[in-house]
């Protein structure tokens, strides 16, 4: 069964990837990992998600969200999107391009944030992927 302790962060151990889960009964893939399948209730197993995907939708956040948002004091608009990874679409912040320069269908790759003192990663970005080496 997937370990869903909240302290271990969002990254898969030993992978430069996000930690998702796959249902052991119906094969549905989810993110973040949780112990029970939201479709059928069966136990899930941890899995590392693909590190590259295709932008499925996007928008620009042009005003400062209310707490618990913890951004820099000087608010800068940022882009949020869903990335199609094949068996699941994962929401996330996009980076590496001006905020209004995104198009559905753009290729993106994952970049994990810095780990905290306990080694857990809590942020990630989808970076514009122009086909360079991974």
């Amino acid at each position: 069964m997937a370990d869903t302790s909240t302290a271990r962060g969002l990254a898969a151990a030993d992978h430069d990837a996000l930690l998702g889960a796959r249902c052991t009964a119906c094969d549905v893939q989810i993110f973040p990992a949780q112990a029970a399948c939201p479709r059928c209730g069966a136990p899930t197993a941890d899995c590392a998600l693909p590190e590259r995907g295709v932008l499925w939708s996007w928008t620009v956040q042009r005003f400062r969200p209310k707490p618990p948002y913890e951004g820099p004091d000087e608010f800068e608009p940022y882009v949020v999107g869903y990335v199609d990874l094949g068996d699941v679409k994962v929401e996330g912040r996009l980076d590496g391009r001006p905020v209004d320069a995104w198009t559905i269908g753009d290729s993106v790759r994952l970049e994990l944030g810095e780990p905290d003192d306990d080694g857990a990663v809590w942020t990630y970005r989808w970076i514009a992927d122009d086909g360079g080496a991974s």
């Binding site: 909240t6 969002l10 973040p32 499925w56 939708s57 996007w58 928008t59 956040q61 969200p65 707490p67 618990p68 948002y69 913890e70 951004g71 940022y78 949020v80 999107g81 869903y82 929401e91 996330g92 912040r93 559905i104 809590w122 942020t123």
Partner: peptide
């Protein structure tokens, strides 16, 4: 909105994705 009220982890809100207007825009855009 408080992520915990929706069974979501705090990082989702801290990183700026717990915003209703964002959802409407993402759905409309698609």
């Amino acid at each position: 909105s408080n992520p915990a009220d929706y069974g979501l982890p705090m990082w989702y809100g801290r990183d700026g994705m717990m915003v209703t207007t964002q959802f409407f825009a993402l759905k409309t855009q698609r």
